[in-house]
Design a protein around this nucleic acid. Sequence first.
DNA 1: AGTCGAAATAAAAACGTTTTTATTTTTCTT
DNA 2: AAGAAAAATAAAAACGTTTTTATTTCGACT
Lengths: 357, 357
Amino acid sequence: MATQVHRVRRTPPPTIKTLAEMTGYSIATISKALRESPVVAPATRDIIYKAAREVGYQANARGMALRTGKSFQAAVLMPVTAARDYEWDGVEYTQTLSGISQALDGTDYRMSVHVIRDAADGAEAARRIVDQGLADGLIFSGILAEDPRIDLLVGEHFPFVSMGRCRKELAYAHVDIDNEWAAHAATARLIAGGHRRIALVNPQRRLSYALDRIDGFVRAYRETGLDAPLELIAEGDLSTHFGRQTVIDFLQLPDAPTAFVCINESTTLGVLSGLGSLGREVGVDVDVIAYDDIHVSAYFTPPVTTFYQPIEVLGRTLGQFLLRRMDGEDPKALRQVFRPTLIARQSDDLGGRLKRT
Amino acid sequence: MATQVHRVRRTPPPTIKTLAEMTGYSIATISKALRESPVVAPATRDIIYKAAREVGYQANARGMALRTGKSFQAAVLMPVTAARDYEWDGVEYTQTLSGISQALDGTDYRMSVHVIRDAADGAEAARRIVDQGLADGLIFSGILAEDPRIDLLVGEHFPFVSMGRCRKELAYAHVDIDNEWAAHAATARLIAGGHRRIALVNPQRRLSYALDRIDGFVRAYRETGLDAPLELIAEGDLSTHFGRQTVIDFLQLPDAPTAFVCINESTTLGVLSGLGSLGREVGVDVDVIAYDDIHVSAYFTPPVTTFYQPIEVLGRTLGQFLLRRMDGEDPKALRQVFRPTLIARQSDDLGGRLKRT
DNA sequence: AGTCGAAATAAAAACGTTTTTATTTTTCTT
DNA sequence: AAGAAAAATAAAAACGTTTTTATTTCGACT
């Protein structure tokens, strides 16, 4: 039933053996020359390089892989929430992948993407990657407060970089956004604008950065001598649906919020959709401050104030750190926490309509 | 400067040699038994399987790869437009990747993602993947009317599945959306609603499906005995910015369009943003029909009528086809064109305000 | 009982590297 | 100029498979 595909191989690709025959040197010398080993004489190195260029020699990755035990793969765990079918979610990951790939460009490493559906799935994937040596390094996000993957990989001394920090004191390479700072800044800004009832649209509490954001939220209130309205912290997946539902739920409370701080662009869109369906207007009835990963917020109607952090830059840093980590560098040196920049597109005091208390 | 990472390998993972020693059979027999070769006696096969389970044997991918010349990688070319920094674009690709990965799940194949910035980049990547044997199969999208990648891969007999069709008559596996049909349906619907000046927000004409959509657009007009307003076909990248700019440009024309047919969700958002900034209202001043890949349109304010095609399903089909193609199946058997389903969220006749001609 | 053929298994080679160990060549020292 | 040390290169082994070829075992048939 299946006709055989037979590739027409014009001529077998050159190997170090080819180069050995061409130059008269042994394959050992060829190998060392190409690896720039200092033991081989510069003159012969040049001869060998010339021969290699001549026939267009490309080291066979499979041969290298078998001998060295390396896979030359940088694995990335890409979360895809199955919560709701085909939700607009996790879309910023293409930017992350693009950034990582940029960092890997020109190296021997390729990027392999492992799709994971939930945290357990992620832990299992990490386990498999380590055990089967599927990759030489790993990048992942969606860090839990107590993330088993970090424990595993630190224990195994497996090179990795996490996008986000867990709540344990461990030495591991990571890149993160300063969520505590940003949540604090957003909340403080709204409080200064006169808001007292501010809702925080937050991810599930087991996610480490959910806690960071709650910390910032609470700190902003505390600094003004107020108690944070913990009942206005909504927890859920990061979907558009969740953002919308949160607005609909919260706005029918007796003491409804007058402002929303959103976790990402996906939920922001949901929040705006919810407001629209209730006939409320941003900047008039309610203020919204959002996170901006991929610059979509600029196109919302009306544009909302955001904390902007191009996620591709995070991706690039992740990739760079992973390369350095795989090269044996101390993870303690590989940490970076980004502070997003505020893009004010609204006054955030309901256009002055709020009576200051 | 770089401290060495030394992994603590508890015990080297079992190989077929381990199993040979355990069972007393030769490694050749072990290999054949595990490959389910009929030459090995069923009794010994069972013994070997039991031993393999006992020590948790996992075939070493690198050994297999070297011997067989296969890489066990399915490569995917992921386009990331560099046109505008950090645009919200190509976001539906996570869904595509998710679908492909689902299809690959449980097979020996892993998914490696190659980020490409433009068409030339893509051709180069394909070349490299074939020449260096970086993967055993390839999936890519953004098909050009005359796509060099398809020519290359067909010529090399390299297994691949394209998301989209080129305009050449070639035997190759592909998955596509029926863009001609959908553009026709959208246009016809608007014409039936009374619209005469309809704008088509389209990708660049060298993209194969741009032509398909123009074909459908023109056919819808022709069927009503009208000439299609070719000057209302906007060509550009698929960015949000492009959608916005198109609206702003077109609406100041003397004979401005009263409806927009959009190419994807990204441009749709731009179109809505442009309308909003001009103070025009969807369903009142202008009608919009869009494509819906990832269900974000449902959250636009107001919701717009869309042609919905869950892109994850396309991805899954791509993956399945690639597996079958790598297994040697005839590409002619591996073709599928999806017709998206209409989700009517607007009346598309400006709420009856259009005077029928 | 001896031979043949089939079935089962074993041995060996190969895939393309890198690395360790061995050998040859060159340079230096006296 | 002989010998030792250093430099350069070669040989061989190894990584874990699969596949081709060789060998053994065993039942069946004359």
